[in-house]
Amino acid sequence: MLRAARARDRPAFIELLASPEVHAHLGGPRPRDVLERELPEVPGRWPGSFVVDLDGTMIGQVLLRRPAGDRLAAVGKVDLGYLFLPEVWGLGYAAEACTAALGWLDRVLPGEPVVLATQTANAGSMRLAAKLGFTEVERFHAWDAEQWLGMRSPVTPSR
């Protein structure tokens, strides 16, 4: 289930942001003590930010946002991002949650193109991008690694 963040999700947000496994392809984890001090009481509260809830427990986060990226192919487009706790990797929750979030976006902003960037070394994220219908736009080098940028064709609303 996708839902808005709540105060009780704060420990799971800290776990996601401090996890070396989760951030292996994202520039490394943030220090837990800094997160404990600086993370708001209810992290991730803005339109397009969803907590992924499994039986009342946060297992991940899906984000849809317009970053101020420097990749020309991504400028002005919505970017899909996701973080999941390692214990749920490979169980299909990311695909299900991202599909639901993209469905929400298609209802709120019909015809909106969506991009997704990931390191090519992140095999799980590359598989997920393909499963979600993203196709390669470009590869580039950033943060000391090869990056992949994919785009999902806009879904045209049916009348």
Rank of each mutant, 00 (worst) to 15 (best):
L54D: 13
M126Q: 08
D55V: 05
R32F: 04
R66Q: 15
V51D: 00
L105M: 10
S49L: 01
D79C: 15
D9C: 03
R139I: 02
Y93W: 15
A73H: 08
F50C: 02
A130D: 07
R152L: 07
R65N: 09
H23Q: 00
T99Q: 13
H25R: 11
Y82K: 10
P20Y: 08
L16E: 00
L63H: 03
V114M: 06
S125G: 11
W143M: 11
R8I: 05
G150A: 04
G111N: 10
L83D: 01
E112D: 15
T57D: 13
N122W: 07
S153F: 03
D70C: 01
E41D: 12
A121V: 07
A68G: 14
V137A: 14
V42D: 00
L149I: 14
R139T: 02
Q119G: 12
D144C: 13
T99E: 08
R107E: 15
E38F: 13
L105R: 05
F13C: 02
R71A: 00
A18I: 06
E38S: 05
G27P: 09
R6Y: 00
C98I: 09
G76T: 08
L91Y: 10
T135M: 03
H23A: 01
M58I: 00
A130S: 10
E38H: 08
E112V: 07
H25L: 07
E112L: 15
E138R: 05
L17E: 11
L54K: 04
V88C: 10
A142H: 13
G90F: 14
L16H: 05
V114Q: 10
V78L: 12
A142P: 08
V62C: 03
E96Q: 15
I14V: 15
E21T: 10
A95W: 01
S19E: 03
A68Y: 14
G69D: 15
L26W: 02
W143T: 08
K131H: 10
L64G: 07
L63S: 09
H23K: 05
H23I: 00
V42T: 14
R71F: 05
L83E: 00
L83C: 00
V115C: 10
E21K: 09
R6L: 12
G28N: 09
D53M: 06
M58A: 11
D79R: 13
P110T: 12
G76M: 11
V78Y: 10
W89A: 06
V88I: 12
L128C: 14
V155Q: 15
F134H: 01
A94D: 06
A123C: 03
L16V: 04
G150T: 13
G133Y: 04
W148P: 09
K131S: 08
F84Y: 09
P29L: 03
K77T: 11
A123Y: 02
E41R: 12
A129F: 13
L83G: 00
G69Q: 15
E41L: 09
L128F: 12
V155I: 13
R37L: 15
R8G: 01
D55C: 00
E146K: 01
P113T: 00
G133T: 12
V137H: 07
L39H: 11
A94W: 10
M1C: 08
E96K: 13
L149F: 02
L116H: 10
L80D: 06
V34H: 11
E138T: 04
P154H: 04
D55S: 06
W89H: 14
D9R: 04
